[in-house]
C-alpha cells in the first residue's frame, strides 16, 4: 500500500462559471514511504494546489486521496488535525508564521498542539532553530527577520516535530545558493532519517537532487521519472 495514493483528483475553482479554473485537472499520483520527490512546473501550473491536497489543507473537488490507507475526505476535523500535526511537516511558500509570536514560539506551536511537555518542547524547538542556523534569532519576531530567515523558521517549525512526511513548497525560493544548499542538505538528512520528502521547485538543478521528479502543467502530470509507462520530457 502506498503512503500517498491520489486517484484522478480535480480541484476546480468557480466551477461552471466563465472564470472556472481547473487548478488540478485529473491528477493521479502514488508516492511510497521514504521517497524523495520533486514536483516541478511553471508558475500557476497547480503545484501548490496539489501540495495542499497532499497536506490535508484542502479537499479535492473530485477524486480520491488516501493517506496511509485512510480516505481523507471521510475523516473528521479532529482526525485531520491529528494528521496535520503528527504526520505532516508543511513548509509553506509564503512562510505562514504568526507575526505576534517569536521565532521560538512559532516553532513550539505544533508541539503545543501535540501536547508535548513544556521543557521537552523548548529543547526540541531550540534544536530545530539551531539546525537551520538561527540560534541567535530565537527571540526575534518574523518582522525583524529577512525573508530567508523567516523561511528557515518555517522549516524549523516543520522539522521540530520530526514528522514522517515533509512537504516543502519552494523552500529555497527566497534563499541564496549557499543557504539553499544548506536547506537541501537538511531535507536530505530528514530523508535519510526515514522521512518521506516532497518538494516543489522551479529549479531543475534542485530537482535533480531528488530521486524522483514529477512534472506538472496546467493541472496535469505530464511526466514522472518513476513512471514505467510515462515518457520523460527533456
Amino acid at each position: 500500500m502506498n503512503l500517498i495514493d491520489i486517484k484522478n483528483v480535480y480541484k476546480i475553482y468557480n466551477e461552471g462559471l466563465d472564470s472556472e479554473v481547473r487548478a488540478l485537472n485529473g491528477v493521479s499520483l502514488q508516492i511510497d514511504r521514504k521517497e524523495f520527490v520533486a514536483i516541478i512546473g511553471a508558475s500557476g501550473s497547480g503545484k501548490s494546489t496539489l501540495m495542499n491536497v497532499i497536506g490535508c489543507l484542502d479537499i479535492p473537488t473530485y477524486g480520491e486521496y488516501a493517506l496511509d490507507g485512510e480516505e481523507i475526505t471521510e475523516l473528521t476535523d479532529r482526525e485531520l488535525s491529528r494528521i496535520r500535526n503528527k504526520e505532516i511537516g508543511f513548509i509553506f511558500q509564503g512562510f505562514n508564521l504568526i507575526e505576534d509570536l517569536t521565532a521560538l514560539e512559532n516553532v513550539e506551536l505544533p508541539l503545543i498542539y501535540r501536547g508535548t511537555r513544556p521543557s521537552e518542547r523548548r529543547g526540541l524547538a531550540e534544536r530545530a532553530l539551531e539546525k537551520v542556523g538561527l540560534a541567535d534569532r530565537m527571540q526575534h519576531h518574523p518582522k525583524e527577520m529577512s525573508g530567508g530567515q523567516q523561511q528557515r523558521v518555517a522549516i524549523a517549525r516543520a522539522l521540530a516535530c520530526k514528522p514522517p512526511i515533509i512537504l516543502a513548497d519552494e523552500p529555497t525560493g527566497n534563499l541564496d545558493s549557499r543557504t539553499s544548499a544548506d536547506v537541501m542538505a537538511l531535507l536530505r538528512e530528514m530523508h535519510s532519517e526515514g522521512s518521506t520528502v516532497i518538494l516543489i521547485t522551479h529549479d531543475d538543478g534542485i530537482a535533480a537532487s531528488a530521486e524522483r521528479v514529477v512534472r506538472i502543467k496546467d493541472g496535469q502530470i505530464i511526466a514522472d521519472s518513476a513512471s514505467h509507462t510515462g515518457e520523460e520530457t527533456p
Binding site: 497536506g55 489543507l57 476535523d77 479532529r78 488535525s81 491529528r82 496535520r84 500535526n85 503528527k86 508543511f90 509553506f92 505562514n96 508564521l97 504568526i98 506551536l109 505544533p110 498542539y113 501535540r114 517549525r157
Partner: peptide, 15 residues
Amino acid sequence: REIGIRKSIGAERRT
C-alpha cells in the same frame, strides 16, 4: 489567517 496557520499545523477546531 492566524487561525489558518494554527489549523494547518494541527490545531483542532475546539482548541
